[in-house]
Design a protein around this nucleic acid. Structure first.
Lengths: 211, 211
DNA sequence: GTCTATATACAGATAGAC
DNA sequence: GTCTATCTGTATATAGAC
């Protein structure tokens, strides 16, 4: 006879991979909000439905959990970028593609931006560097370089331009709770319409700024 | 006979205003790094040289201290902006002036950017709104509007453009610890030369993007 | 006004039952 | 694999001496 859980109480799943992932998901949320040091394992556990003992069982301690979250995020982002094959595109198309891709990724999961920014603010990029940042900016840098060399883009400091383009794309999403008062009360800055407007604005401004 | 402090031990200053300000300064540093919830009063006290009991004496609790820090910062920023009198300038000059002013302010004290961003991430802008954000973006918004109406600037969504310009200026400073790997090892992103390059890049890109 | 000492609460981490 | 109970350290905040 099958073992039945008490009424109202969720039966333990006993699925290692599922539990591990749900902890990672919950931790991503928590870390994206308050960073490594502000995060509470208790609060992460509460989001998952398992107890905090499980966090130590799977990740040993909070710091390791944080590393795992960062690694998962960065790996996904890099795979995303690789799939673009920007080298096969004209400089203008390549820049557009990278900007679109960055925006899509950060809008679909705003935690990406928050986590990386908190990492810079709180840990001086310690955990970010370990997995080599450069590659996340590489495609944009290379595309801008090509465009400047071919004369398609105006001359300028490639790396500063790169940082500024990323900042333009990212800021709206991560600072949205401060910015929201600039729009009529109740506007959802992450709604489809608002995001589309942001994407349009970023693309237009980026291309105008580099041409 | 004058009372002498024990050798090696600093004599208590007993200057209320000075103590209060030094607590605010230290708190600004700490909050800018880890935000309201990550901050430790002990750590704030350690930076000041007074004990944490003083924090409660002057501000009652950590939350009030945080509010005081935010208010001081925003008041300063607003005064800064008011002194520009952007309405007396042409749209182009006005935008340049605001951008220069924003950059100067955030470079001189990077805590401004960090604090406001952490506020958005961690508190949904709760403590920021209280002191009415809109006025900090007002001058830039109005200048852009004027420029678009006069035909000096291209048409576009004024508020999105505003947010994007601010993001472009701010991101470099607050995310510098992540970005630093894009430059040769050891480069100080807040050095005079690097800041000047950032300012140049922002001004050039902003004006190109809105024209 | 500033300190030391302490009350009280809560966090991260472990032990051991199931 | 998951839970409950608990140990240990540390945080905010208070009390009271100076």
């Amino acid at each position: 006879m099958e073992k039945i859980a008490k009424p109202g109480v969720k039966a333990p799943t006993r699925d290692a991979e599922a539990t591990r992932n749900s902890i990672l998901d919950a931790a991503e949320q928590e870390f994206a909000k308050v960073g490594l040091w502000g995060a509470r394992t208790e609060s992460i556990a509460a989001r998952t439905g398992v107890t905090k003992a499980m966090i130590h069982y799977y990740f040993e301690n909070k710091e390791n959990l944080y590393k795992a979250v960062m690694e998962r995020l960065i790996a996904k982002r890099r795979a995303d970028l690789d799939s673009l094959c920007v080298d096969d595109l004209s400089p203008t198309d390549a820049v557009s593609a990278v900007v679109r891709n960055l925006l899509a990724s950060i809008i679909q999961n705003p935690n990406v931006g928050s986590l990386m920014l908190l990492e810079a603010l709180q840990n001086e990029g310690r955990y970010y560097m370990e997995t080599s940042v450069g590659s996340l900016y590489g495609p944009l840098i290379e595309s801008l370089k090509r465009g400047m060399q071919s004369g398609e883009f105006a001359q300028g400091d490639v790396v500063h331009v790169t940082a500024n383009v990323v900042g333009m794309c990212v800021f709206y999403v991560i600072a949205r709770d401060n910015l929201k008062s600039l729009w009529p009360e109740g506007t959802d800055l992450l709604s489809n319409e608002m995001c589309q407007a942001h994407i349009d604005s970023c693309l237009k401004m980026t291309l105008a700024a580099i041409k």
